[in-house]
Structure formats: C-alpha cells, structure tokens
Nucleic acid binder design. Structure first.
Lengths: 117, 117
DNA sequence: TTAGCATATCGATACTCGTCGATATCGTTT
DNA sequence: AAACGATATCGACGAGTATCGATATGCTAA
C-alpha cells in the first residue's frame, strides 16, 4: 500500500455522508454532482461560443434568431444547447412576442470561478 | 428576424477563421474546443472528488493506492479518471518505485478561472 | 380565420463516455 | 528466477449526448 511516513493521514472511505461527520473527504458527493453538472454544461464548444456571443452583446441580450447563423448548426441544435445553458443557470431568457431573448448570468460564472479556489 | 434597433451589430457567420479577421465572433472555434476539453475533464463527479482529495493533501501529493478506496470505484476506473485529469493538465504524476504520486496543478485552475472573466 | 414565421419538442442515428473484469507491465522481494 | 503487489491498458457493455429532419406550439399580421 502507501508508504509508512504519513499513515495516519490516510483518507478513509466514508459512506456516512449525511450531517457533518464526513470531513476527511473534501468534496461531498452532492457537491461533486452539482459542480460536475455545471461543468458539463460548459464542456461543449457550441455552448461556449453561444455563451460568449451572448455575454459580449452590446445590449446585454441576444435574440435567438441571431444565434443560429453564426453558430453554423441547425435551429433545433442551437435551441437544444440554449436549453442546456438555461437549465444550468448560465443564461436567462425572456420571450417578447415571437422572439426569445437570452442574457448571460455572470454571477453563475463568478461563483464557479470562486469554487476553483 | 431580429428587431430593427441594432441591425448593424448583428453577428455574422465567418468561415474564414484563420489569421486575424474574425473579430465579430468573440470565441474562436479553436479556443472553444480547447476550453471545452478542460471543462469536460471537470464534468465528472469522480474526477472532481479525485482532484479535491489531491488538492487538499497535507503533503501536496497523494499515492494512487490511497485513492481507490475513498472514491469507491474499481482500480481501473480510478486509473482511467486520473489519466484524464493528467492529460488535461490538471494533475501531474511521478512514479516512485511501485507507487505513483499525484499532485494538483493549481495554475491550471487559476487560468481557467481567469477565462471566466 | 388563415397564413407565415420563430422557437421548442420529438424521433432516430451515430458517437462518446463511464464502468468493470481480465490482462499486461513493471518494480520489489524472497 | 519466481512470486507478489501497484498501476495501466484492453475489450465489452450500457448509458448518455450531439445532431438533424420532421413536427408541434405560439405569436403576429393580413
């Protein structure tokens, strides 16, 4: 197994992860799942470019109809990716008439960045 | 299509993404691909917990043999995830005898955090 | 009401990925 | 040399996902 120097600090499996005991595992299962889901939303180049376009919009918002062409994917595909960004809390949307406007949620990225230490 | 207010700032598809022209698309295809690959490495709860354990190690490094039990997955699975973290530049490894020691690369996370604005 | 457009959903397909048992590789020990 | 233990790789399987054509939903205009 491990060398003998710091045998005492050996991390141990802790199935009891409920209340406040599990301090030997830095990141809980739940936190890991939640964090991973946000990273998963950012793990696609199409979504990163969508987020980039939306974030850098002069008016702070972009019509969905103006996202299909620059991305170069089909309308259902772009709609699919926008939904994933929305469900991850990375963008918010507002329907105005026939159009849907998307805005970035920078606080979401800020909180993400802060959790990277 | 889009409303008429800011028709001039409408982002346009730019297939010529080589030298320095494409400035209407904030994030290039290449940058998006590269960023997405790092996020993909962080998009799994097992890898996040591995990274967390390694990062918070008192000695700054953890033996791979001490990672299998707390993660609760098989040894090939843990080895697989460690490889992905390594190839993403998030951890570095050093073989000492029979054991392999893993260290975190915090600068990698720092540069990631800085790219989230 | 009907026609037309913007957006979302559905169904299908191809591909990627997480997982594990079995096995290979490699250093250590006897 | 032979046996053993730690780690990586392989092969396979099941689950998830990116993509798109077709279709549904919903708003607007005639």
């Amino acid at each position: 197994m491990a060398p003998k120097t710091v045998k005492a600090t050996k991390s141990k499996s802790e199935t009891k992860v409920c209340c406040g005991t599990a301090r030997d595992i830095p990141l809980s299962q739940r936190d890991a799942d939640e964090l991973a889901s946000v990273f998963a939303a950012l793990s696609d180049p199409v979504r990163l470019r969508l987020l980039s376009i939306i974030s850098s919009a002069p008016d702070g918002e972009v019509c969905a109809c103006d996202l299909v062409t620059p991305i170069g994917k089909s309308q259902p595909t772009v709609s699919h990716h926008l939904k994933i960004l929305f469900e991850a809390g990375l963008v918010e949307r507002e329907k105005r008439g026939v159009w849907v406007w998307y805005r970035a949620v920078p606080e979401r990225l800020d909180s993400l960045a802060s959790r990277l230490h």
